[in-house]
């Protein structure tokens, strides 16, 4: 099959002052594309051709190519990861497109995800949010026997449904407010449903929401675009849970005068 690709090319990293830099859409026509190719294999094919012709290949993030590492995430025809639901860019195949299709490829766009080059963006804001509290503060040592902690099957399933997030950033890219609430909510929800997560419940909700706001992610639009594009089909239920947990934590907060000093790590 034949495709006409419109690809965002940007050689310099975006800055707060100059977001788009010298970026622009460039058109490439590609023939002899096999319908069995994955979308990224089609880009490999394009890059092979460009390299032979002396033109710089298109930069894009990718690694496992089996939908679990979360590296890839191209906005295809305006939709992060493209037209197929519940599917990462790497798992999308050319059989999802018609022969002769015109396809638009852009990087994820959000204030908190500056473009580094072409289709590559900086998603380290997610890591910083996790560092603020998406964990249980247990050090390596000798915790008690695993079966001493009972977890109801449906609670474990709910925790898993949230923990399956791959941190790709599609939720942010799909949201017109560039909100990260599906991502952050998934972290809250994962630990919320487990007994191990209870001791740090309030602190986690407070710290994660604060860190999320600090990174410049926007507020929820309540339009559920995030859920629609999530390759792991994480439910917006986690956003409701996060909001509830945040309010609960705030209400339970001790008045400032009683706050203990230091040792919050």
């Amino acid at each position: 099959m034949k495709v006409k690709l419109h690809i965002w090319r940007q050689s310099k990293a975006s800055t707060a002052q100059n977001f788009a830099q010298d970026g622009k859409m460039v058109v490439y026509e590609l023939d002899n594309v096999s319908k069995d190719m994955s979308f990224l294999e089609m880009l490999d094919f394009l890059n092979d051709k460009l390299t032979r012709e002396g033109e710089l290949p298109v930069a894009f993030d990718h690694d496992c190519r089996e939908g679990v590492c979360g590296s890839c995430g191209i906005v295809i025809d305006g939709i992060p990861h493209g037209p197929q639901r519940g599917t990462t860019t790497c798992q999308l195949h050319m059989r999802s497109f018609k022969d002769g299709a015109e396809i638009y490829l852009e990087p994820m766009r959000a204030k908190a995800f500056p473009v580094l080059k072409d289709l590559v963006v900086n998603r380290s804001a997610f890591d910083r949010v996790v560092q603020a509290g998406a964990f249980i503060s247990v050090s390596t040592g000798a915790p008690k026997d695993a079966n001493a902690i009972l977890v109801a099957k449906d609670a474990a399933e709910k925790a898993f449904d949230a923990a399956t997030c791959i941190g790709c950033g599609a939720c942010v890219a799909a949201c017109k407010n560039a909100s990260a609430m599906l991502f952050v909510g998934a972290k809250v929800s994962h630990f919320l449903h487990l007994p191990q997560g209870q001791p740090e419940r309030d602190r986690r909700a407070r710290n994660l929401v604060t860190a999320m706001d600090k990174e410049g992610f926007g507020n929820c639009t309540n339009q559920n675009e995030c859920e629609a594009v999530c390759p792991k089909e994480i439910s917006v239920r986690v956003i409701a849970e996060m909001n509830r947990e945040f309010v609960r934590a705030k209400l339970r907060e001790e008045p400032p005068s009683h706050k203990r000093v230091g040792g919050d790590g």
Binding site: P143, D145, A146, A152
Partner: peptide, 15 residues
């Protein structure tokens, strides 16, 4: 397994 459970790894469970 003990360590991972303490960290909140959601292993498969029985009823």
């Amino acid at each position: 397994i003990d360590q991972a459970v303490a960290q909140g790894v959601p292993f498969a469970r029985e009823y």
